[in-house]
């Protein structure tokens, strides 16, 4: 088993005729993911590299039976695309797009309330269940099927963790990049709940970073609800205050959002926090042995 995506996931790509959309649709298909088509308004009825293109998500879903959408549209259109997918009844919406205005996400989150849909991202690498489905932009070959779940606010740091695990012969159940923006579709807690229920996930790596309080909230949740071993790394212990570190959400504002606070909260919840990003794999290995 796994969470969110598997070999039965049927994926459409919104923005499939753009260069990033097409490149990654092709990469996902090569990995073995069922990429059943794409959406680009005005190009419905055409075909791009073997992918049928539809004008609307509704058409794509009705004709292909897709249950998952992967979004690559420019930031200015991301809110529209996310809500179009939600309205079309797509169960899992994964938005890769970077640079989505925060107030757009405030609206999207409000719009999603009470609806049976999961949004991952934006500004994220996507979701990967090794050996079954790659729905995102991560390099497929570094992953190995197995029993460690990964949740991360960072893209490349997720790959780093996966790579360290695979080098140690430890496979992953599912790897979820939740995104680096201040407001995101699914939080650490949303994904922790799924991993906690998943029989095939035996341990979890949580990768956080400075800014906000999502790690502290996750720590409180873990303390109360999670018995599986959790290992964490928090990026940005050397970041200066008040400076945005690339991600819109990675900023220490005033006295809140520092790495030290997050590390303390996680350790208090019984989480093993790695002092160095090079030790994520080894620390997880210790935690499960």
């Amino acid at each position: 088993m796994s969470i969110l995506v598997n070999k039965d996931s049927k994926v459409i790509v919104q923005g499939i005729t753009g260069s990033a959309g097409l490149f990654h649709a092709t990469q996902c298909r090569e990995y073995g993911t069922q990429v059943v088509g794409g959406v680009t308004p005005g190009k419905g009825g055409t075909d791009v590299d073997g992918f049928p293109v539809f004008d609307t998500v509704e058409d794509a879903r009705r004709i292909t039976g897709a249950n998952t959408s992967l979004i690559f549209v420019p930031a200015a259109f991301a809110m529209d695309s996310m809500i179009e997918a939600i309205d079309a009844g797509v169960e899992l919406v994964i938005c890769i797009t970077e640079g989505v205005p925060t107030l757009d996400m405030v609206k999207v989150k409000k719009y999603m309330e009470g609806k049976d849909v999961t949004l991952i991202g934006p500004n994220c690498p996507g979701v990967m269940t090794p050996g079954e489905a790659k729905v995102g932009i991560m390099p497929g070959y570094i992953h190995t099927p197995g029993n460690v779940g990964i949740i991360s606010r960072s893209g490349t740091l997720t790959y780093e963790a996966v790579w360290q695990l695979s080098e140690l012969g430890i496979g992953q159940s599912t790897s979820v990049g939740i995104g680096g923006d201040p407001i995101i579709g699914s939080t650490f807690i949303d994904v922790l709940k799924l991993f906690n229920k998943d029989k095939d996930t035996e341990a979890v790596i949580l990768i956080g970073e400075i800014g906000g309080s999502a790690e502290e909230e996750a720590a409180a949740y873990i303390k109360e609800n999670v018995d599986k071993p959790v290992v964490a790394f928090i990026a940005g212990s050397t970041a200066p205050k008040g400076k945005r570190m690339g991600h819109a959400g990675a900023i220490i504002s005033g006295s809140s959002g520092s790495a030290a606070d997050k590390v303390a909260a996680l350790e208090d919840a019984g989480v093993r926090v790695c002092p160095s990003p090079a030790e994520m794999g080894e620390t997880l290995k210790e935690a499960i042995s």
Partner: peptide, 14 residues
């Protein structure tokens, strides 16, 4: 990547 960039700073310090 921002997370890896921060981690790279962190590991240099480490």
């Amino acid at each position: 990547g921002a997370g890896l960039a921060m981690s790279t700073m962190d590991i240099i310090k480490h």
